[in-house]
């Protein structure tokens, strides 16, 4: 495939993240971090694909990622986030006192929120040594992922198929709202938030279905799409072009979803038949709203959603992806990282 660079790194990759670049410059990201899992010694490694330091190569998009530095890490790396201010890698992974695996971390500088298999939500501040707050028994099952909705609101997904909204300003130990697919108890593994419209989130779970939710509107997801044949591990909206969405899965595929806001007929690209079900019974609230996300008015019958496979055929799980600008990086259980510098967004 064009623009895809693969590198075998002798460790199973569980997370990949770009170092953020400033939005004002049109710079492409150059540095990313990877975390490994299931090794005797797990590592967090920082890689560079840029030309700084490395003599420039002929290619427009320099080839092989070069290892910048790596750090030993006890235990599997399950989640990584960047602190956008200091651009350092702080406490990417935290074990609560009883050594329950921590499954997710999210930060909104200087606040950091982690969630774990013990069903706790813990908040930290990057500049403080102590824990800011612990919500015990936030969930009776494992919390798999967490994301910020607003400055003080977070959303978690758990292993019994629920989305829980938490208002961090409120003291109690109960969520402000619980959403779930009625009847289904399919574990959810990942959540991605729309970069501009904070009420829109996408989730993916064990059955590989992609759900788009409007958290303001109650209990049913806006649309349900059959995406993968096994666990979906991560879902990301493109940070600057949210009509594009990326998902990766245990079945070894990485999908690029594109919904076009213009009313032009388009044809399914790539060799994929995606069957879609839409349960968008409700019309979007507030008809006078000027911008309605393409994800919410997505009418499946018009086939305005396109999906494309981003990776050459491969059999082992794609555990993580991150996309920034035109660059996409993903890591697999096949111990390879793929960098694509020409994502069509």
């Amino acid at each position: 495939m064009d623009g895809v660079v693969a590198k075998y790194v002798s460790q199973k990759i569980s997370k990949t993240r770009w170092r953020p670049v400033s939005h004002t410059t049109l710079q492409q990201p150059e540095i990313f971090a990877t975390g490994s899992w299931d090794n005797e010694d797990n590592k967090i490694s920082i890689w560079s694909i840029g030309s700084n330091g490395v003599p420039a190569m002929e290619d427009e998009f320099e080839g092989d990622p070069q290892l910048v530095c790596e750090l030993r890490h006890d235990g599997d790396v399950l989640d990584l986030q960047t602190l956008s201010v200091s651009q350092s890698w702080a406490r990417a992974h935290h074990y609560p006192s009883d050594n329950a695996p921590c499954t997710g971390v999210v930060c909104n500088s200087p606040e950091i929120v982690t969630v774990g298999e013990d069903g706790r939500i813990i908040t930290f501040r990057a500049d403080h040594e102590t824990v800011t707050r612990i919500i015990d028994n936030a969930d009776s099952s494992t919390i798999h992922a967490v994301t910020y909705l607003k400055t003080s609101e977070i959303l978690t997904v758990n292993s019994i198929g629920q989305l829980k909204l938490w208002d961090l300003r409120q003291q109690g130990n109960s969520p402000s709202q619980i959403l779930s697919l009625s009847g289904d108890r399919v574990p959810l593994h990942c959540v991605g938030r729309h970069p501009n419209q904070q009420h829109i989130v996408a989730t993916g779970g064990q059955d590989g279905m992609l759900c788009v939710w409007d958290v303001r509107q109650g209990n049913t997801p806006f649309s349900l799409m059959e995406a993968h044949s096994a666990e979906m591990w991560e879902v990301h909206f493109h940070p600057t072009n949210p009509d594009h969405l990326f998902t990766c899965s245990e079945d070894g595929s990485l999908l690029h979803w594109e919904t076009s806001s213009q009313d032009t007929p388009s044809f399914l690209q790539g060799g994929r038949n995606n069957s879609m079900m839409s349960r968008s019974a409700m019309a979007p609230a507030g008809g006078n709203q000027s911008i309605i996300s393409a994800w919410l008015n997505g009418d499946s019958s018009k086939g305005r959603l396109e999906t494309t496979h981003m990776l050459p055929s491969q059999t082992l799980s794609v555990n993580s992806l991150d996309v920034l600008g035109q660059c996409l990086v993903c890591g697999t259980d096949g111990e390879a990282i793929f960098v694509n510098g020409q994502v069509p967004v």
């Binding site: 569980s14 695996p101 494992t142 096994a230």
Partner: peptide, 12 residues
């Protein structure tokens, strides 16, 4: 089975 993630993979 160190973590649930690994357990899920084995389970799959």
């Amino acid at each position: 089975l160190d973590t649930e993630r690994k357990a899920l993979k084995v389970l799959r």
